[in-house]
Amino acid sequence: MNYANAIFPGPEQTAAFFGGGEDGAFVMVNLLKFKDRAEYPDGSEPSLSGREAYARYGAAVQACLAAVGGKSLYAGAVTDLLLGEVEDLWDMVALAQYPSRAAMMAMVQSPEYQAIEKHRVAGLAGQLNIRTKPIGG
């Protein structure tokens, strides 16, 4: 299995995801890999780690999620691998619930989200976002 961490989806991925049929609530699994040092475009916060920059985003995104009817379900550091094999473990796993694709789109387009996204970008080396639906749901 090959995978590629990214910071943003490409235009085709975005169109396919948000253009998909609306089928209600889902949980997004976020597999996160942090930079050693945060990288803000203006050069600020040079001593901040990528994890610390992302933590600023993580704290602020709670209000953005709530504003569209979503919520954070879980966030935790990756510590070990019991089964399988990967070249490099992710640093963190986070689960976020959204009521719909439209709600997620509204969130990421909101001025409030746009204002905090700089911390996400400064801290992340890359991530995978995996949309999940309950079995039978």
Rank of each mutant, 00 (worst) to 15 (best):
E112K: 06
K133P: 00
A59V: 14
V93R: 03
S49Q: 00
M107H: 00
D88Q: 15
I7R: 12
E117C: 08
D88N: 13
G126W: 01
L95I: 03
Q109I: 05
R51D: 04
E52K: 09
E12Y: 11
N5W: 14
A115N: 03
Q62P: 08
P41Y: 07
S110C: 05
H119F: 02
G69Y: 06
Y40L: 00
A66S: 08
A4N: 13
P99V: 01
V78P: 05
N2L: 13
S47Q: 14
A4D: 11
A15F: 14
G50L: 01
Y40H: 05
V27D: 05
L89K: 14
V78F: 05
K71A: 12
S44I: 07
F34C: 02
Q114R: 15
K133E: 06
L89H: 08
F18M: 03
A15P: 05
S110E: 02
D36F: 08
Y57R: 01
P111T: 10
L124V: 00
K118D: 03
R56M: 09
K33C: 13
R131I: 11
M92Q: 09
R120V: 03
D36M: 04
V61Y: 03
V78L: 09
V27S: 05
G19Y: 10
A77T: 13
D23F: 15
H119I: 06
F34Q: 02
A16Q: 11
D36T: 10
E112L: 04
G69W: 03
V121I: 10
A75M: 11
V93N: 01
Y113W: 09
M105V: 13
A4I: 09
I135W: 13
L65S: 02
Q109F: 10
A122W: 01
M92L: 14
A115I: 01
G43A: 01
